[in-house]
Write a protein that binds this DNA or RNA. Sequence first.
RNA 1: GGGGAUGUGGUGAAAUUGGUAGACACGCUAGAUUUAGGAUCUAGUGCUGCGAGGCGUGGGAGUUCAAGUCUCCCCAUCCCCACCA
Length: 814
Amino acid sequence: MEHKGNYNFTDIEAKWQTYWAEHNTFETKDEGSGKPKYYILDMFPYPSGNGLHVGHVEGYTATDVMARYKRMCGFNVLHPMGWDAFGLPAEQYAIKTGQHPELTTEQNIATFKEQLQKIGYSSDWSKEISTTDPDYYKWTQWIFLQIYKKGLAYESFAPVNWCPELGTVLANEEVIDGRSEVGGFPVEKKPLRQWVLKITEYADRLLDDLELLDWPESTKEMQRNWIGRSTGAEITFKVDGTDHTFDVFSTRADTLFGATFCVLAPEHPLVSEIVTLDEKDRVEDYCEAAKDKSEVTRTDVKREKTGVATGAFAINPVNGERLPIFVADYVLMGYGSGAIMAVPGHDERDHIFAKKYNLPIKRVLSPKSSHESLISIEEEAFLGEGILVHSDFLNGLEKAEALARMHHEIEKRGFGKRKVNYRLRDWIFSRQRYWGEPFPLAHDKDGKVHLVDEKDLPVTLPEMSDFKPSKTGEPPLSKAKEWCEVILNGVQCQRESNIMPQWAGSCWYYLRYIDSQNSKEAWGKEKERYWLPVDLYVGGVEHANLHLLYARFWHKILYDLGLVSTKEPFKKLIHPGMILGPNGEKMSKSRGNVINPNDVIREWGADSLRLFEMFLGPIDQPKAWQTQGISGTHRFLKRVWRLLVEEDGTLSSKISHKEEDLETKKLLHKTIKKVTEDTENFSFNTAIAAMMELLNFCYKKESLSFTTAKSFVLLLAPYAPHIAEELWLKLGNKKSVSDVSWPSYEEGLIKEKTVKLAVMFSGKARGTVDASVEASQEEVISLVSFDEKLSKYLEGEKPKKIIYVPGKVINFVI
RNA sequence: GGGGAUGUGGUGAAAUUGGUAGACACGCUAGAUUUAGGAUCUAGUGCUGCGAGGCGUGGGAGUUCAAGUCUCCCCAUCCCCACCA
């Protein structure tokens, strides 16, 4: 490493990492310290076998810069780390290699932890947790019991998302375009007994309380869309000649007069009840075929619409018309009531279906523009705004009035009611895998649920050699016969053999950190009141509709139970933009563009890596790794070193106790202000640029004051902590730089009295004059007229108008 | 189809309330120096032109003394959701 000059980052970094560990430098004192608290949280990693990647380093460096900065600013900072260690990859790896997931998890955690320490992550490791630790998941199970007792967990036998490849059921949030989020395997609908949490009961609050959060607007919008609140009406239709009725949900009750048929989803329970003898075979075949279709084909928007008539008719409650009832798979059982009133005149899907099966199409909205009224309703559905026609009491009304009137009429006549519908489904909370939290409950022979007593928690995972998932949906734990047998409340029971999903442990981990050693309760109330909410949460946007929604949901339940004191868990949220490979593509093994932080640290050092990742661009933007770029931040650190340290390792002779000259002093104070504000605003790239400017300036000077040198090192400390500690020591200080106060600046030194004032002629910039910020317009005009270059623009011209903005610009309009 | 974001040199990017576009860095060019290194230092580097100058923030209009920034229209890329009734 000699060729890199005498800045020996390898030794320096190792030295200070050891120092911090031995001195418990980052130990967090609890409440009562008198300092304001600041809780900085990273989304804890899944400890995969690949170790940390540069994407992790980005987020963790950002929080670490903040943690170190806030400590120096006098905050009591909590900056913990732990492991979201339950989950599929460990289990899949275990099945492949025969190693128990507990073992691989342990090894991976050790690797991750070592890597985090190598990047200089300033965590209080005494707070470390792992979701797989029985002392941790004991409380995950305990929270589940509270949720169950509150009536928010229930068993469902409805069709669920079954992934044969993974051998487990998945939540809606884990299915993307009919495929599993993990692995991308096809997903089918299959009826299986499942535990479900009533997240829909919290839909409104999850939606409304987004207002309270300092989160990226796009993330809030994603959650709003995912919750998908829509207001409309539920309208009840009678089946002609029977006592059967069915409800449809519609946001466009104003078009009820335009309904010409109804459609039931193939899974709708009424289908088999109302189908006529003539149509029975065809309908049964159709429903059977729909069942076989995987979610991938079923939800394909571009697929041709198909359906069959049931032979039955519904009565339109508003005018008594007979409407044929169809079964078609473009109607989904999972949304609304699984039945629709079809208005082909004003709905594109219904229109396509009506054309295909020769069903009547009625116009009930008359377009306002003459252009649109030329298009026949037979040709295409009219989707725009219009005036109601052929609609009895609604005729002549606009949409909003018509809707209100119809809603009123529906309720008055008693064939329906106003209704709010959500796209959000209840959360399917059980998985047919091994490596997860067992449920703390069992069933007796009559299927009645018995809870495990709280004092008997945790229900630990049984040791098993064969924990492969089955093709049938039978959970692996059911093979642990002895474990399954249990007596609860004196009754012989079978333990629940499903496990909780991967997300369970991460729903409350931020609460455990504050009191991770507590064996009596999940967390102490005092500690909760002191530390919550999390002030800054940093992690990937991919969790917008998963972890970030689930954790908010659990938090609200805990709030209702009086177990936490805040409505929301995470006050401010930041998503680090993904770091792409040097070719601008997502880093992946198959693309061969993965950058390993270990290699980078070995070659350039952790400080260079930290600085580089923060300098690459705005924290929330995606950015491509620049293989050459790291030499820039490395060079900067080397220059910092050479500025302050002689080649023999002693303090540079340039540094003296002399009073600093005014120009340097001014720049120093400007830099302190800039770095302070930019760090506060997470604008790390520009903060680093400001430090570079100050360095470049000092580097050319013959001498430097102790004050300037010290302030500079302090500014650098959150970003490049190892070199900062070493330089701080060389500057004759005893304490760790982490225990020193952040430098302050004097506004008076920052305000410039004279500036380079821009001179414009008719809006074109032609040059500058040095003018006082207090100079009058006359003074500035005279400065311009005495300027050799600028005066010529004024010759022979009389400006029509002069705009003068002191300290900024003077513009002569000619 | 719906929602969101982004678009500035060869590259990553800067730019208070509209006020000299390109800070800082990478790369490149020339030179210096040397213990020949992915070292260091100096100068230069938006495009175009010998030059004065002209042109420049995805494209087009507009507001303004002045627009990367404000308004309208269009284009491209990325992300999320999607037969959602």
